[in-house]
């Protein structure tokens, strides 16, 4: 299983698309690592610097609904993982992006809007999230405060995270 948890990058916008996560001009790369420096390069968001420390330190992204819409490019999860980001939390995801995350053994966690709002309350300080996958709860902590939030990770999603992706599972089963 991959490792999950650490400093959080908050992206306070809905409908962040895969062109923003990794622009098409980098789709000519044939190695996943080459995508790393270009993560979120085209995202225009107040206070966000795609070349800043926040993105380099981040291990978790917290965003608004419909994260990862648009193109099917798995380059989007790869660009995240190349930067050490193995988990994204949002109220909802575009179908293909969500599946691509789990297919690579990464976490795309859907939480209710209210829970995501609660996470965003920690954005002023350097927040960290830790995951207890067994207990299906996460803890966000910043500036001496912390909150616990329950989530659900079961069935196929859980299996893919434990198997580090769909290929190993499918190659053995079919």
């Amino acid at each position: 299983m991959k490792s999950f948890g650490g400093p959080v990058l908050f992206l306070d916008r809905t409908d962040i698309n895969t062109d923003e996560i990794i622009p098409a001009r980098y789709l000519t790369e044939i190695s996943r690592e080459a995508l790393g420096p270009h993560l979120l390069e085209d995202l225009k968001l107040e206070g966000f610097d795609p070349k800043g420390d926040a993105i380099r330190n981040a291990r978790v992204i917290v965003a608004r609904r419909n994260f990862g819409c648009g193109s099917s490019r798995e380059h989007a999860p790869w660009a995240l993982e190349a930067n050490g980001i193995t988990a994204v939390i949002a109220p909802s995801f575009a179908r293909i992006f969500r599946q691509n995350m789990f297919n690579g053994g990464l976490l795309a966690l859907e939480l209710p809007e209210t829970a995501v709002d609660l996470l965003f309350q920690f954005r002023k300080e350097q927040a960290e999230i830790s995951f207890d996958l067994e207990g299906q709860r996460l803890t966000i902590a910043a500036g001496g405060h912390q909150e616990e939030i329950a989530f659900s990770l079961a069935g196929f999603d859980r299996t893919l995270v434990e198997a580090e992706g769909w290929l190993g599972f499918a190659a053995a089963r079919y």
Binding site: S72, R73, E74, P77, I96, Q99, N100, N103, G104, F156, G165, W166, L167, A170, A171, Y174
Partner: peptide, 18 residues
Amino acid sequence: AGVGTTDLEVGLLKGVCA
């Protein structure tokens, strides 16, 4: 349906998709 590269790999190899 559009899929990512991992789904494509499994599709090519095994002829299935979830």
